[in-house]
Design a protein around this nucleic acid. Sequence first.
DNA 1: GCTGTAGACTCAGAAAGGTAGTA
DNA 2: CTACTACCTTTCTGAGTCTACAG
Length: 649
Amino acid sequence: NTTHLWCLRALKYSVPILQRARGAGERWEEEHYEDGVKWRFLEHKGPLFAPEYEPLTDNVRFHYNGQPMKLSANAEEVATFFGKMLDHEYTTNAIFRANFFTDWREVMTSAERKLITNLNKCDFQEIHTYFTEKTEAKRVQSKEVKQDLKMEQEAIAQEYGYCTMDGHRERIANYKIEPPGLFRGRGSHPKMGKLKNRIQPEDVIINCSRDSKIPVPPTGHNWKEVRFDNKVTWLASWTENVQGAMKYIMLNPSSKLKGEKDWQKFEIARRLKGCVDDIRAKYSADLKSREMKSRQRAVALYFIDKLALRAGNEKEEGETADTVGCCSLRVEHIKLHNKLNGQACVVEFDFLGKDSIRYYNKVLVKKQVFKNLKHFMQNKDPSDDVFDRLNTHNLNKHLQELMEGLTAKVFRTYNASITLQHQLEQLTDSEGSEAEKLLSYNRANRAVAVLCNHQRTAPKSFDQSMKKIQAKIEAKKEQIDLTKSELKSAKMYHKVKKDKKSKLVVEKKKKMVQKLEEQLTKLEVQATDREENKQIALGTSKLNYLDPRITVAWSVGGWVRSGEIKWRVGGSESKGMLESSSWEASTSTDTMGRQRERDALSEMLSFGWDVTPRLCGLFWRQFHCRPLPTKKYTGVDPEGVVVGGGGGG
DNA sequence: GCTGTAGACTCAGAAAGGTAGTA
DNA sequence: CTACTACCTTTCTGAGTCTACAG
């Protein structure tokens, strides 16, 4: 049921502390900060550190070369990291094992190091069993105990999980410091298995306001530094030891800060929509530029625009998995086909992109693009860059000149969102059932996920669950046949009897058939949806690439159900009207469409909030197609505002 | 200008967690 | 009613993008 609003998770987490008295129609405009300033006031409790290591009891033994041995506390802790992962594929990977063993030996005592020289002789089985049993014990404990534990966690979250930023109580995304463990890189990462050290307060930089209550470090400890930098958004940071990367504690996406940025992102994408034709004309012309750099840039832009490739920064060789994006494509990643299956100028891509997800695609390209590629790849080794005169820096600099705020990734956002809109227009049948409309939405969403190459490994039980739903469909069909024949005999009986009672039976059977047939289509649609979604991940595009306004326009703008719609906020229902205003209809300057959207939001958000762009951003971001609220996510937030939750599927 | 690097922020899929439907 | 399990959401943290700044 896509036409109900229910999920205002954002409200649950971002609560204005300084409620302003505002009259009807008065806009809430918070002052704009000067360039680069992100906040005026920031107060928080500091991060929550990982619980200390609890040594194993003597009955859980590590064996070396068949002999049980008690490890020193440090060595034992690191051993448990490996032991816990025993049924994971990582522990069979040679690089993982080698890195782990090297780092493990470093924390051993010299005696241990002398003895333990071969990982193959190490037996972590008891450790593994111990933790498996522990998990199981946790799983089976009583409802009451689980509830208590949850309450405890909630209390901690209330203390550490929120901060105050400029008068708003904001939820923190990751208030917990990452616990020590073994580094799990994606793909074939040269550092996988290395030890991620335990972070101490002495490693952590705190960022807050000078006039706030400065977080107190755990007793006996000190912070690395306390700074008061309001040009950045993070609350705390540290440097991670495996890659030397910085880690940050930042706000939840529901926060004003993140929501506003998110909103801005879609506004930039919409601005691109306004000038994308010019930009396309420009790079198409540049395909024939006399300057090599411009030609390469033009081809790269063509790919970024047409295929939604990522920019492709250079990476330090040997430090990370070997993955590429557009600018870092190598000759070995591209095959040129003068003719393929009757088509001319086909480019075959095969490379590993972000997270080592494979990108494989055969694409029909412009003749000039093909010619250029041939030229770029001439006399080069497979490991040479295709675009040797190009990098993301000068590409983005060029884009910046074409449109303010334009970078390579904006094309991804733009093309994702415009694809959703076009697909929705094409696929939605206004006469279809809700299940069919939901399928249309998911198909449109899927087109975007395919464009952005968002993949997932098929769920373990996929085939099984597919069989199950097929069985259900068969059962339903049988049931329909049965009911139909019952209807037939009821009709015959009625012909003879011609009384009220027999007529009633006919009606009843008729209704039953109808109902069953509805259930059948719903199941069939569900099965189709699931099958098509086997290896495609919709979440990332839904969350990060699709302008929620398009979904709102689709779901309430008459495509799904025209006329009056009911908005559900918490327990109370209010009614609102909203006219269609897709990306096409609304522009960056405030149109009537936007105003109506705001009005509708205003209705929904009848908690004394003004509907600022930010709020729209917050709420829309959360607005996916999902059914009515169920009890499970309905809660009361700290300020006593009842918030409905979204659940189900 | 160009290059290299640190820093800060968005976006990514896997894994964990939790609930509702089902046996 | 309870245990199981399928399925969806949230959490986690790694992997990108992009900018600022130094030499």
